[in-house]
């Protein structure tokens, strides 16, 4: 151990131990350079987001200024004549997303509550696994499956039944089509169920057991315990989960493009074909040119604005929940 012997020798000889020597320039500079590098990378998120808004808005600007407010208030979309009103697409995006949520919310909450509160231990893993599997399936695969399997097997018969028995309500008036708001909504529901159920599951898990025991101790049944203790505690988080699912549904493109029926007008019946903002971009982009493309970019800007608002609201809600 030469080094230690040296240290000992130094002491014996009364030599003061080495003073603190600063690192050479390189070591110190590497530190601040690395810090700077991470700062730049971090800021990139903000820069890219800002650049996205500017670049797309800039491209769509001629259409925004020529169409004015009627861009979003008119449903007359006719690229051949230079008419670009996107209300029908906004309507379709909202309607398909609402249908998706109407189906997905009860199913997702049922799954989440079952897995956390009711399921025997041994089925929890497999259920969670199977539902998470749905989340991994790419949307184009959903679209393909939706068109060739779900459409003849379920969507067409279901649309026919709806219009046959509820057709007196304008919402379900025929002639029915499987390729419709309804058809797109059902596939969207399947796509957002894993999102909403897995997030709600995590939220419900955070409810302290003490709350559950308190409810049981008062003689509550399991359902009364869930209603009285679990739901109130996790409400904000569940709302956030639903909003994130909504954000996904609003922006989903390919599955909707294949199933919504591609009709560029507003139809009050959900079993009739329609369109959505994302779907019109995907379907018409390849044939578009000039102003038509600018208008499609404009559709994207409006879609972006809507989803960003929904997402920010959802994040704020989840954040508030986590902070408490």
């Amino acid at each position: 151990m030469q080094s230690e012997a040296r240290t000992l020798g130094d002491v014996a000889a009364g030599v003061a131990p080495a003073a603190i020597e600063n690192r050479t320039g390189i070591g110190r500079r590497a530190d601040s350079l690395f810090g700077l590098l991470t700062l730049v990378s971090g800021s990139l998120v903000l820069i890219v987001l800002g650049f996205m808004v500017v670049s797309t808005t800039n491209t769509a600007l001629p259409i925004f200024s020529s169409e004015g407010l009627s861009f979003v208030t008119s449903s007359n979309w006719n690229p051949a004549d230079g008419n670009y009103g996107i209300l029908a697409f906004i309507y379709g995006t909202l309607v398909t997303s609402i249908i998706a949520l109407v189906i997905a919310i009860p199913v997702s909450l049922g799954i989440a509550l079952y897995v956390v509160e009711a399921a025997p231990r041994w089925v929890r893993g497999p259920i969670t696994y199977a539902v998470d599997l749905l989340a991994a399936v790419p949307s184009v695969v959903y679209g393909l499956w939706g068109v060739f399997v779900l459409l003849p097997l379920f969507l067409q018969p279901a649309a026919a039944l709806l219009s046959e028995y509820l057709g007196f309500i304008p919402l379900f008036a025929g002639p029915p089509s499987g390729l419709s708001y309804f058809g797109a909504g059902v596939v969207l529901a399947i796509m957002v169920i894993p999102i909403i159920s897995s997030l709600s599951r995590e939220v419900i898990r955070t409810v302290p057991d003490a709350d559950r025991y308190a409810a049981y101790a008062l003689g509550a049944t399991r359902w009364e315990m869930i209603r009285g203790a679990v739901i109130p505690r996790s409400r904000a988080g569940i709302v956030g989960a639903v909003m994130l699912g909504l954000g996904r549904a609003l922006g989903e493109t390919i599955a909707v493009a294949l199933l919504v029926g591609s009709a560029t007008r507003i139809d009050p019946s959900v079993v009739r074909p329609g369109y959505s903002m994302a779907a019109v971009i995907a379907n018409q982009f390849q044939e578009a040119s000039g102003d038509h493309i600018r208008a499609l970019v404009g559709v994207g800007v409006v879609l972006f604005a809507i989803t960003i608002l929904v997402n920010m609201a959802a994040r704020l809600m989840v954040w508030r929940m986590v902070e408490r």
Binding site: P17, I20, N22, R23, R28, D31
Partner: peptide, 9 residues
């Protein structure tokens, strides 16, 4: 004085 150098001693 560089704190990193301090900690080396």
């Amino acid at each position: 004085v560089d704190p990193v150098a301090v900690r080396r001693r």
